[in-house]
Simulated scan of single mutants.
Amino acid sequence: MRAAYITEHGPSDAIRVGSLPVPVPGPGEVLVRVDAVAANHVDTFVRSGAYATEMTFPFVIGRDLAGTVVHQTESFPAGARVWTNSMGHNGRQGAFAEYVAVPQDRLYTLPNGVGPIAAVSVLHTAGTAHIGLYREARIRPGETIVVVGAGGGVGSAVCQLASAAGVRVLAVDRAENAEWCREHCGAAAVIDRGSPGIAGQIATLAPSGVDVYWNNSGRHDFDEVLPIMARGGRIVLMAGMGSRAELPVGAVYTKDISLHGFVISNASAADLRAAAETVNRELRSGRLRGRIRAELPLSEAAKAHQLLESGTNDKPGRVVLVP
Rank of each mutant, 00 (worst) to 15 (best):
A274P: 01
E295P: 05
T312W: 13
E309G: 02
G290S: 01
R289E: 03
A269T: 14
G311K: 11
T278F: 01
A302Q: 14
V320M: 07
S285V: 01
I264D: 01
L307P: 08
N266S: 14
R293D: 00
A301M: 12
P297D: 03
Q306R: 15
I292N: 06
S268E: 00
K315R: 14
A276I: 03
A301H: 10
A275F: 13
A294H: 15
R289K: 13
A267D: 00
R281K: 15
A275M: 05
A269D: 02
L288G: 03
L298S: 09
L283Y: 06
A302C: 12
S310I: 06
R284F: 03
L307D: 10
K303G: 07
N280C: 13
A270M: 07
Q306H: 13
R284W: 04
H305M: 11
N313S: 13
L288A: 01
R284G: 05
L307F: 06
T312L: 12
G317Q: 00
R318C: 05
T312F: 10
A269I: 03
Q306V: 07
A270G: 04
N266I: 03
L321N: 00
E282S: 09
G286H: 01
K303E: 15
G286L: 09
A304T: 09
H305T: 02
T312N: 09
P297G: 07
R284H: 05
L298P: 14
I292T: 14
S265I: 14
L296D: 00
G286T: 09
D314W: 11
L272W: 04
A269R: 12
T278Y: 04
G286K: 05
A269V: 12
R273S: 04
S265M: 15
N313R: 15
A270H: 11
S268R: 00
V319W: 01
R293G: 09
A302F: 13
L296T: 02
R287F: 03
A274Y: 07
I292E: 07
L308T: 01
L272F: 04
Q306Y: 03
R289A: 11
E282K: 10
V320K: 07
R273L: 03
R287M: 04
R273C: 05
E295C: 08
E282L: 14
S265L: 13
S265C: 11
A276F: 11
G290E: 01
A294E: 11
R318I: 07
T312G: 11
T312V: 12
V319E: 00
A270Q: 08
L321T: 04
H305F: 10
A304N: 13
S310N: 02
L298H: 05
E277F: 07
